[in-house]
Structure formats: C-alpha cells, structure tokens
Nucleic acid binder design. Structure first.
Lengths: 186, 186
DNA sequence: GGCAAACATGTAATTAATTACATGTTTGAA
DNA sequence: TTCAAACATGTAATTAATTACATGTTTGCC
C-alpha cells in the first residue's frame, strides 16, 4: 500500500512552463533560474527562489524534470535540473495550445486615474508627470537591453521570440509615453 | 480586557481602494460592487463577490466604511455600504500618493513567444493570427464602450479619468494590433 | 588571512485571488 | 402560476505569490 501522493499541479500555473522552457534551453539549477527572472525574462515574469525551489520538487515528482547532484569545490551541493521527454512534450503542448485570454492589466496608476473626475483636478498633472518619467526610464532601459542582447545581428535568428517580445515591449512603452505626453501640460 | 482584534489590512491590497473609490461615487451593496467589476471597471480590474464580501467586513471593522441594513420586498436583506470620513481620507491619500512601480505584464502569449527560437517556426504565424483576432475584437469592444459611455460629450467633463483610461486602453490595443500585423505574413 | 559578495538551497507565514459550495428572495415573462 | 433570471450574501478550499526566516559554501579582492 502506497502513501497518498498528490502531484497534480493547479490549472493555471504558468511558472512551471517558463521553467520548462528555460530548462529546455539548458540544464540549470534553481539558483540559475532565479537569476534568469532578474535578468533576461525579468521584464516579462518574476519569481523568487522561494517559489522556484518547491516548484522544482513538485515538477520532478510529476516526472517532468530530473536532477543530478553535483558538488562545487569541497562540498557546495548543486542540483542540475533538466527536462524529461514528458516535460519536453508538456512544453511543446503548452506553446502550441491557444492563448485565448486577454491579460488583465493591473496598473495602479490607471486605477487611480479612474477616480479623477475632472480635467482640472490638481493631482492629475503631477500623476501624469510621474508616470511619464517612469515609463521614459523603462523605455531607455529596454532600448539598451536590445542594443546589448542583439548587438550581433545574427542573434536575432536563433532568439527570434526574445527579439519579438523586446520589440513589443519597446513599442508598448513608446506609445505609453506618447499617450502621457498628449495629456501633459507644457 | 478586550479580545484580540486584528484588522490591519495587508500592504498591497489595491482592491480596498477601488472599493473606497466606488463607494465614494455612491453608496452601494456588495452585489452592486461585484457587478461594477463585470462592467465599467472590468477592463481594468476584476474581483469576485467571494473576495468582496469578506473585504467589506474587514474594511468596516477597520473603520473605513459603514453599512445600513435595508429590506427589499418582504425580507430580502441588503447592506448598503458608504464611506466614513476616515475611509474618504484613505482614498484621497491613496490617489495622491506616488505610484512608482511598473506593472509586471503577465501576458501568456508573450511568454510563449520567448520560447519560439526561429522566424520560420511553424507555430509562430498561427499564434500571431490568434492574438491579432483577439486584440482586434477587444479593440472593437473598447471603441463601442467609448461610444456608449461617452456618447454625450459632456460626460467627459465629470468622468475625465474614466475617459482617459478608456482612451489609453484603446490606444494600447490599437498599437498591439498594429505590432502584430507587422509580423504577420500576408 | 580576513571579509564581503555571490553562490546555493531550503522552509514558514502570510496575503491575494479564484473556484466551488451553499442558501434564500424577488421580478418579470410565458 | 410557474419558472428562470437576476438579486443578494455568505463560507470553504485551494493556489499563487511575496516576504521573512534560516543556513552554509566559494570566490576573489584587499
């Protein structure tokens, strides 16, 4: 008789697919994954190590990934995770499957705007100015990332999706800034 | 000696401020609030009644709102909630306070794109087409909402923020659709 | 050699949010 | 008059995610 074991992963857990995708690029540790969420995909998704480590265990339990124990130096233990065929198939299925939902865009500034009733509310212009600076800074940051990541133009060819989403984010911020400018007083 | 009572509301609970803002527009019931999240602000924030009712209790406990019991017909009980001065001040403070954080945009399609490595991946074009249709539909929906909500041009004057965020959402969808079109094969 | 930053892995507590469960009333149309 | 849709209010269970707690190793610079 076996112990009760429940490894069913909730229905809308997107983080697991991102992890599958990252492990498909190359086997790596939980620590490496956590760093990836601060760097290359940090603009698009965030996850802390405290969410990653338990999820890796669940995913291994579900048979989607496996790990190999390694040691750096004398005794620093590492767990190098990689996809199983099942995990790879799960990733392929996820990417292929439709994404028919619109993303709820939970922008706090937009929410606050809703409660500004008139164009002459004294809070409006400072709010617009603050957001203008914020999104301008983000735009510059994204443009610089594109320059560094895709400095070598051939990089686009084998990281096309990454290029597309950076391009998309840059377009989005460009128009956000333009939209704000339109309502900013000189 | 009093019982332990803990009414501190967690630090990033934005829903409470939306409720304060809605109750400031007019006193209403939890049911009315839940409907508002399906209609006028549904494009910008969502909340189910199962989240609203307990929160209303916590907010009343915290002294931000009060309710009045009414009865419709013979015995259908309703709780009409309204702001206290404390609650009103909390709303004003929230709107006035800076919003210096960028919203993480957790768009599943964008995530999937990241794992498309080459421009000739056969999944790319269908994905772009699907999103094109989705965002085109959303754009039309938003445009129609603007026409109905702001049919009377004087409405803009006393619901300026609402006008701005609808305008912003329309701009965003317009450029999203344009961006997709740019990468769609004919 | 000392020391800080980065490497590396975990758990606990709490909050936000969704889905499902649960119950009853009123309105309005067929 | 019957019946469905809308009105109205709750709780329970579960999941996703963040913050805080907790511990130890290695690298590289001064």
């Amino acid at each position: 008789m076996r112990l009760k074991e429940l490894t069913i992963i909730g229905q809308r857990n997107r983080l697991q697919y991102i992890i599958l995708g990252l492990l498909n690029q190359q086997p790596q540790t939980g620590y490496d994954l956590a760093k990836a969420f601060e760097n290359e995909i940090g603009e698009f998704w965030q996850a802390q190590h405290s969410q990653i480590y338990p999820l890796l265990k669940r995913m291994e339990n579900a048979g989607d990934i496996t790990h190999e124990d390694t040691v750096t130096g004398e005794k620093l233990a590492k767990k190098q995770y990689k996809l199983t065929p099942t995990g790879y198939q799960k990733l392929v299925d996820w990417v292929s499957e439709p994404s028919p939902e619109l993303t709820p865009n939970k922008d706090e500034f937009i929410l606050k705007l809703y409660f500004i009733k008139t164009a002459d509310d004294p809070r409006l212009q400072p709010m617009l100015r603050e957001q203008y600076q914020l999104h301008q800074a983000q735009l510059h940051h994204l443009q610089q990332r594109r320059e560094t990541v895709f400095a070598d133009s051939t990089t686009v060819d084998h990281a096309y999706g990454h290029y597309l989403i950076l391009d998309h984010a840059i377009e989005r911020e460009t128009h956000y800034v333009e939209w704000l400018a339109q309502y900013l007083n000189p």
